[in-house]
Each structure stands twice: as C-alpha cells, then as structure tokens.
C-alpha cells in the first residue's frame, strides 16, 4: 500500500495526495493500493494492519531543508527522528502497539517525506517549489515498489 497522509485543503499538506494521485493510474489496484488519509494514531494502525509493505508519503516540516526536498526514511529510523512531522511520532507508537497486540503488521514501512513551505493556510493548491517536487517524489515512490508502472 502507498499511503498518503495530509490534508488537501491545507496548501502543502496535500502534497502526499498529489503524489498518489499522480501514480494511481499507473498501477493496477490489485497490485498496489493507493490510500489518502488525514488520520493518524489509532486510525493509522487500523489502516496499515494486514499489509505486507507500506510506503507513506507525507509533508515534512524540518525547516532545515529547502522546500521541495525529498527524503526517504525507514521505519527503524522513526524513534531516532525527533518528530519532523507529528505523523511519524505516532507511527512508531502505532507499530509498537500493533506488535504488542500481535496484529499482522507490515514487515516494512518506508516514509517518503517532501519538505514543505506552507502546510497551514487553507488552500487547495501547493506552493510552486512543492508542486515542482511532486514528480520526483513520485519517482522515489516507484523506486521503492517491487513493480514497474504499466
């Protein structure tokens, strides 16, 4: 599953959605599921449980990288990352909770983060630098999938 987190009405917070919308037509639904969600925490657990591998695409606010930078993180890094986005801090907990409950958790979770400029204003559009990064982020996601686009 490729899971986009964010809110497409909050300017750059919608970048994950833009990436999965760009990729969805290139894959059959049976092979890769593209999901958009604004949820986190327990709902996130409910979303990812049962999947073999999950790629999460999300907006990042580190403030130290230029807007539009794309980075890839493995789930093993989450505990060491000091909340670049609230979603990840939740993810480490969610994984822990899932394992403790003995739920079938994905064996691999990778996060593709896109550094954003404005995830706070009400707007359905991305800022130019972030919009320009959608294509490269999409290519990064494709490189993480075990399949080629059709």
């Amino acid at each position: 599953m490729v899971l986009a987190l964010g809110n497409d009405l909050l300017c750059d917070d919608g970048v994950g959605f833009a990436v999965v919308r760009r990729l969805r037509p290139s894959f059959s639904e049976a092979e890769v599921e593209f999901v958009e969600s604004g949820e986190s925490g327990l709902a996130l657990l409910e979303l990812i449980v049962g999947y073999e591998a999950v790629v999460i695409v999300d907006a990042l606010v580190s403030g130290v990288r230029p807007a539009g930078s794309v980075i890839v993180m493995d789930s093993s890094e989450f505990c060491r990352v000091i909340a670049p986005s609230a979603h990840y801090a939740g993810l480490a907990e969610v994984m822990d909770l899932g394992h403790r409950l003995g739920l079938p958790m994905p064996s691999r979770i990778t996060v593709v983060g896109i550094e954003v400029e404005d995830p706070y204003s009400f707007s359905p559009s991305l800022t130019p630098a972030v919009a320009a990064a959608v294509e490269s982020a999409a290519q990064v996601v494709v490189s993480l999938l075990p399949l080629e686009p059709r």
Partner: peptide, 12 residues
C-alpha cells in the same frame, strides 16, 4: 485538530 498534524500520541 485540523487534519494536519493530528496526533493522539506523544508529541513533546
């Protein structure tokens, strides 16, 4: 919450 950064978790 607005949908962004909504976290029922351990934000510092």
């Amino acid at each position: 919450a607005c949908a962004t950064h909504s976290l029922p978790g351990q934000m510092p």
